[in-house]
Every structure is written in C-alpha cells, then in structure tokens.
Design a protein around this nucleic acid. Structure first.
Length: 504
RNA sequence: CGGGGUGUAGCGCAGUCUGGCUAGCGCAUCUGGUUUGGGACCAGAGGGUCGUAGGUUCGAAUCCUAUCACCCCGACCA
C-alpha cells in the first residue's frame, strides 16, 4: 500500500537537511552505522566510490614524485608527547591500548589482562611515528627530499559522529615529506593543495576555495595550514582537504636532522597533507537532490545501467541479446582515461522499483531498452543530473555517450559553482553579519547564510560574535585580490578578506 | 561530562499513563497465483527471552529500583 512519493528521498533538503543527508546515504546504500560506536561500515557502492577516488589521487601523488609506504597503526604514547602543540590538539580524542590479552572473568565474560609497560595509542594521524622513522633515514642532504604517502585508517574518538563527515575511524591518505629548506617544504605544501583542488574540481565536480587557515584553526603543530573549502547545499562550509607546512617543529621534536653541503647540521623541514572519506560526504552534499545521490561521471563506479524491458521469455532473450551488444559497444568508449562502465540490470524486479533503485544510487545514465525501442533501433536515455529523458537512435547515443557524460560532469560543477556564487557576500559591518548568519526560525533553522567575505584584524576581536553565531573563519583565500579594509567588528584596518561561514 | 529522549520481529512503530485472554500494526522476507513501458495486487506463511538484572503482585511490555546501550542538543573536532 506504499503510495508513490513525489521524491525518492524523504525528507527533502529544505524540510530537514541533516536527515535528508542520512537518507541519501541509506537510499544509495553507501554505508551504515555499525555496532561499534561512531564507526561506520562502508558498503560496496560507497567503497567503490572511494576506490575510484583513491585511484585518481594515487596517480596524482605518483605523478608529483611521491611513493607509497605503510607505517604502524599503533604509536607509543611517548612519541605523541614530543611535540607539545600536537599533544594538546589530539590528546583528548585518542583511543588508548593498555593491555595485550584477554582472560576469563568470574562472570563468564572476558577482561583485559597483561598491562602494557607503555600504552599504545591508535594513530589519530602519523606525524610522530613517521617522524621517528624519518629521523633514522635522514642523515645527509643527499637523503632529501623524502616524499612518502600512506593510505591508512585513523581513529579520532569524536563525541558526535556523522556518516562520512565525522566518524571515529576513517580512511584517508596522509602524505609526509621532508625537505632541506623551508622554501622547498612550503612549495610542497602548496603543490599538494593544488593537487587536492584539481581533484575536487575536475573529478568530484566540487568547486573549492584554496586558502590559508588562521592561527586558531591551524593543525596542531603546524606553522601554516592550507585548506580547500567547499560549500554544501545547505550553504555550510566543508573542509575537504588540508596541507600543512610543519616548519621545523616536528624535526626538532624528533631529531630529524641532516648534514648540508657545508658540513653543517640542520633540522629538516617537514610537511603533511591529507584527504579522507569525508570527501564522500562532500560529494553527497554538493550534488545530490531529493531523489537521492548524484555522482559525477568521472568518479561513478558505474556510468550507465541498461534496464531491459520485456513481457515474456521470447522477448526476454531478444531484448537481452540486444542489451548485451549495446553494452559491448558502449564499453569500448572512453571517459577521459577510463573506459565507460556499463552494467545490465536484468534482475526479476518491477520496472519502477528498479528505476528508482538506480536513481537513488546516482548512476549517471539509465538506459531502457524494450521491444519498441529495438524495433526502431533506438534507446530511451535518462540523465540523472537533470532528470531529462529522451529517446534517441542507438547510433546517436553510442556516438555521443562520452560527450554526454562530460557534459554532466561540467553541469554538476557549474551548478555547484552557481550555488556558491549566489550565497557569497561581502560584509563590512556587524549588523549585516549577524543578520546574515541568523536564521529566521530559531527553533528549526531554515537553510540560511553562506560564505561571508569579511575583513578582520585579529581573531580575538571577532571571537565573541563567531562563538555566538557558531560561525568560523574558514580560510584566507589565496586567490583573493582584495585591497584591504576595515574589520567588520572593530573597524581596525586589515589586509585580505577571509571567508566566514558555518561549517561541518 | 551536563540537559533531554528512546530501547517491543530485519526496519519503522502502537500498546505503558489506568497491570489481565495467545503482545499487535505497517514495510520487508518466504510460498502460490494474477500482473508487468514503470515505486503492483490477492491469498497464505515464517519471524519476539518486550535492552538487562532485581523487586512489588495471583498476574508485569506496563508499576518500583538499579544498570547498560543508543539517539538528539551543548562543550571538542578532518
């Protein structure tokens, strides 16, 4: 008795954005919560998406001279203690291993036994364990630079979690490099931010702002933190990737030093940079609509699903044969460097149900093929991004499929760019700022605000109002060409504008 | 760690205030049939230690006590 609903996902974005987000994930079967507090299970469709992201990023890292390696999950507690800022930043959210076996307890259960002499922490990030190894590997300037990346899981014991956006355990990559000079390390920091921005915009179709974090928002232990910031459809900011110039902080703490050309001992300069499964959250919240997930073709695990339509066995075999040949023909087409992925969904399932299954999963193109289509050698094509459905000849479709997918990729990017442009404003006084970030409905805040470009002279001056409105300084954009102006709170002169926004 | 809430079938819930036959409903699942260019219909079936442990009672999903788990709101964060 389940009546067809107007939208495949309920509630809609405007009704309840956070709940919509959860339902999109559920509808697309990307992931679900696990019995382990704060930890998610990434299901095959979600993991395939992550694998595509990994494949592209990994190539980008290799193309910029990096190699992959793997370092331990566990870090001796004393390692973390070495860098004071770093300890302070992460100590409160670490999982700590204190025992190395279990024994039966009197109640028939198990209890930890065999206390460790030194507790191990599960890595929240690997600067310290990797730094300890780098200290051994670096002796001479000839050993530099070291350019290593690792794909790993990390654990941060967050108080509140949300699928993909913030989970206790998440998957990521972390690059860790060592350089002889500050300039070279800073160049590496910038270079990797560019890689992330390139990936976000050209593969994820998510427009990002490259910028520098303020002191208050910096990575614990970094001298400079750069980030890419994206705007989600609820107009909140999401930090999608970070790249840190760590100066000599970690090399001094961990004795990463080398003899230079002149025989002098110097501390090395290090960087670290990472993106995580959070990118999937960014993807979802940038493109999806009230019918579910929308995937940018370049990262979609499957580009086209062919849905055969038939009534009886005779038609079935005729239609399936046609679909198989269509599939084969489409599979030879390329989308960029990747072959187009085509699947045939011939499950015994009602047509409408099957259609919505793929709509919710965000497959870019859905192609229906039935006897009537075959009779005129045509296919019925539905585009996920626009919802447009057209019948076209088979030859026309196969000839243009690659172009259509690239158009979709571009359309998603343009759409997201427009949303951001429509909700980015320059604000120069406190009243406007407060009005911009205050929802009309205090009980159930509607989607409001966006990015505010403002001048500020010092973080302390704006701390109070930011705290009150739950707004943060996202970054000081690198590409900004602003000429300076007065702080929106104090009127004191400031250089460049910063992006202010509510954030995930 | 504060404030609020929820634990009943795979999922979503009703029943609890006011204790009482065999604990219900929707979706999902399974079987049979009818359907089939679009989120089907009919008939039937399976599936529950009512979070856990005590207590009150002739009798507890329901009342009392304790406890655990999870969710939401805050403080903290990729």
């Amino acid at each position: 008795m389940n009546k067809p609903t107007k939208t495949a996902i309920e509630p809609t974005r405007t009704q309840d954005y956070p709940e919509w987000y959860q339902q999109v994930i559920k509808g697309a079967d990307l992931a679900e919560n696990s019995p382990v507090r704060g930890c998610m299970v990434i299901k095959p469709w979600g993991y395939a998406l992550w694998e595509n992201m990994q494949r592209v990023l990994d190539k980008m890292f290799k193309d910029t001279g990096h190699q992959n390696a793997y370092f331990p999950l566990f870090i001796p507690m004393s390692f973390l203690e070495k860098e004071a800022q770093h300890v302070e930043g992460f100590a409160k959210e670490c999982a700590v291993v204190t025992h190395h076996r279990l024994e039966p307890d009197p109640n028939g259960g198990l209890r930890p036994a065999g206390p460790l002499e030194e507790p191990l922490i599960v890595r929240p990030t690997s600067e310290t364990i990797i730094g300890a190894m780098y200290a051994k590997w670096v002796q001479s300037y000839r050993d530099l630079p070291i350019l290593i990346n690792q794909w790993a899981n990390v654990v941060r014991w967050e108080m509140r979690t949300r699928l993909f956006l913030r989970t206790a355990e998440f998957l990521w990559q972390e690059g860790h490099t060592v350089h002889a000079t500050a300039e070279e390390a800073m160049e590496e920091t910038r270079k990797m931010l560019e890689v992330y921005a390139d990936f976000a915009e050209n593969y994820m179709a998510v427009p990002v702002i490259k910028g520098e974090k303020t002191a208050g928002e910096r990575f614990p232990g970094a001298d400079v933190t750069l980030s890419i910031e994206a705007m989600m459809q609820d107009r909140k900011a999401l930090q999608a990737g970070t790249s840190h110039f760590l100066g000599q902080n970690f090399s001094k703490a961990q004795e990463i030093k080398f003899q230079d050309q002149n025989g002098q001992m110097s501390y090395a300069w290090t960087t670290s940079w990472g993106v995580s499964t959070r990118l999937i959250g960014a993807l979802i919240m940038t493109h999806s609509d009230d019918d579910g997930l929308i995937l940018p073709p370049r990262l979609a695990p499957s580009h086209i699903v062919i849905q055969p339509i038939y009534r009886d066995d005779a038609q079935r075999s005729e239609v399936l044969t046609y679909c198989q040949s269509l599939r084969k023909e489409l599979s030879t087409q390329m989308l960029g460097e990747r072959a187009i992925e085509v699947s045939i969904d011939d499950r015994d399932m009602r047509g409408g149900e099957k259609k919505w299954y793929h709509v919710k999963r965000g497959v870019p193109l859905r192609v229906e093929v039935g006897p009537k289509d075959i009779a005129k050698d045509a296919v019925f094509v539905a585009r996920r991004d626009t919802g447009e459905q057209v019948s076209m000849s088979r030859s026309e479709f196969t000839a243009s499929v690659s172009k259509i997918l690239m158009q979709m990729q571009q359309n998603l990017f343009d759409r997201a760019t427009k949303l951001r442009a429509d909700h980015t404003v320059k604000i120069d006084n406190l009243d406007d700022f407060r009005a911009y970030f205050t929802p009309k409905n205090a009980e159930q805040p509607e989607i409001h605000g966006g990015f505010a470009e403002c001048h500020f002279a010092s973080e302390a001056d704006v701390a109070e109002i930011l705290n009150e409105l739950k707004v943060t300084i996202r970054c000081i954009p690198m590409d900004g060409d602003d000429q300076g102006g007065p702080c929106f709170v104090t009127g004191k002169p400031s250089g460049k504008r910063a992006i202010f926004a509510k954030a995930y």
